[in-house]
Simulated scan of single mutants.
Amino acid sequence: MARVLLTAHVLELLLQHGRYSVRFTVRSREKAQRLFEAHEQYRSKLEYVVVKDIAQPGAFDEAVKSDPPFTGILHVASPFHFNVTDPKTELIDPAVNGTLGVLKAAKAFAPSVKRIVITSSSASIMDPNKPNNGAGYAYTENDWSPITLEEGLLNPLSGYRASKKFAEKAAWDFVEREKPNFDIASINPPLVFGPVKPYVSSLSRLNTSNERVLSFIQGNAKNGAPPPSVYLWVDVRDVALSHILALENPEAGGKRFFITEGYFSNQKIVDVIRKNFPQFVAGLPEGESNGGYPQDLYKADNSRSKRVLGLTYRGLEESIRDLVQTLVELGVDEEVSRV
């Protein structure tokens, strides 16, 4: 049985594949307990290590030591929130230091590891300041965001974008410089939608992308769905699968993967909710003739993910429908009825 270290929560598919035992890292024992409870049937294949601060030197040293040894690592943990006052210390440094910490620990203490898959972001690929929405430009894995450290310090959103670019850059530079016993692959998704994981116990614990869908359901877009800052998306289940495929496929080593189904708009999300959940229609705006898209827009080339990983993508309607259904199960109907 292959053994994998997971630094966040791509658990379901790893366990369902049946050939992995997993050690995952968490910041508290309470969080570990919630994960155990959500995956009770796989308890014999699970263990955890508490890593309170991924940015601390040596944070992952003990986590990577294992008998039997690990063959792979999925590094998914990185700060992603906008409630910050100092983008460098709260976003950029933890992302860079956490990524380098995993790589350094694996090189020093886990010679059996052959592949590390790192969750990066489309933010390390795309340039949001391209004129005219980047119309006519096709982004690929060869692109790197031009954001500078100085720009990353301006506000939380820029800080997040900088954190993803500099953390991923640091990983590729480390492999080139240190020549470790492993290679790496990066997963670069844009906004991620899809069903809420079973250990999410309340509506207050949603990720940033899914929070916008909850906001629409709560009636916060009655006067029209605002345009998103990025028009690309992917389902969370496809992101999870891409990590496993990148871990298992020898050809994936040394490659970045732009993981995106294609375009979405906030209005398209609203349209899916209106179609499938009539109880929320009163708080949702009517559709727009152009679906809420600008007249001209950049393109995104996801062909490498299909060709190398063999990935196929879920459509937006399935993803949003499944997401809203899990929100209903968490009690969003009752919350909306009180508004």
Rank of each mutant, 00 (worst) to 15 (best):
Trp172Ser: 01
Ser66Met: 06
Ile320Ala: 10
Pro111Gln: 07
Pro128Met: 06
Ser303Leu: 07
Phe258Tyr: 15
Ala225Asn: 02
Pro79Ser: 05
Val234Trp: 10
Leu149Asp: 03
Arg29Tyr: 01
Lys114Gln: 15
Leu309Val: 10
Phe60Met: 07
Glu151Leu: 04
Tyr160Gly: 01
Ala8Met: 04
Ser229Gly: 12
Pro69Thr: 02
Gly287Ile: 09
Asp238Trp: 10
Arg19Phe: 04
Trp172Asp: 00
Val236Met: 03
Ala171Asn: 09
Gly283Gln: 14
Glu178Ala: 14
Gly262Glu: 08
Leu6Trp: 02
Glu40Gln: 14
Glu12Ser: 14
Val339Ala: 10
Ser305Asp: 02
Ala138Met: 13
Leu149Met: 15
Gln41Asn: 02
Arg3Tyr: 05
Tyr313Gly: 01
Asp173Lys: 15
Ser66Lys: 09
Tyr48Gln: 00
Leu11Cys: 07
Ala106Trp: 11
Leu154Arg: 15
Ser121Cys: 08
Leu6Asn: 03
His81Tyr: 13
Ile54Ser: 01
Lys299His: 11
Val332Lys: 11
Arg34Ile: 02
Tyr160His: 12
Ala282Gln: 15
Tyr20Trp: 12
Thr148Asn: 05
Gln41Val: 13
Ile273Glu: 05
Lys165Cys: 00
Ser265Val: 13
Ser229Ile: 14
Asn266Val: 08
Val10Asp: 03
Arg256Ala: 06
Asp127Thr: 11
Leu323Lys: 05
Ala185Asp: 02
Ser66Trp: 03
Ser158Gln: 13
Gly331Glu: 07
Ser121Val: 12
Met1Trp: 07
Phe24Cys: 03
Ser229Arg: 06
Ser186Gly: 05
Ser202Tyr: 09
Pro156Thr: 12
Arg256Trp: 10
Ser145Asn: 15
Gly58Ala: 01
Ile259Tyr: 11
Ser21Met: 00
Pro131Glu: 12
Arg338Cys: 00
Gly18Ala: 09
Asp235Ser: 11
Thr148Asp: 02
Ile116Gln: 02
Ala63Val: 03
Ser163Asp: 04
Ser303Asp: 04
Ala170Tyr: 10
Leu245Asn: 04
Pro69Trp: 03
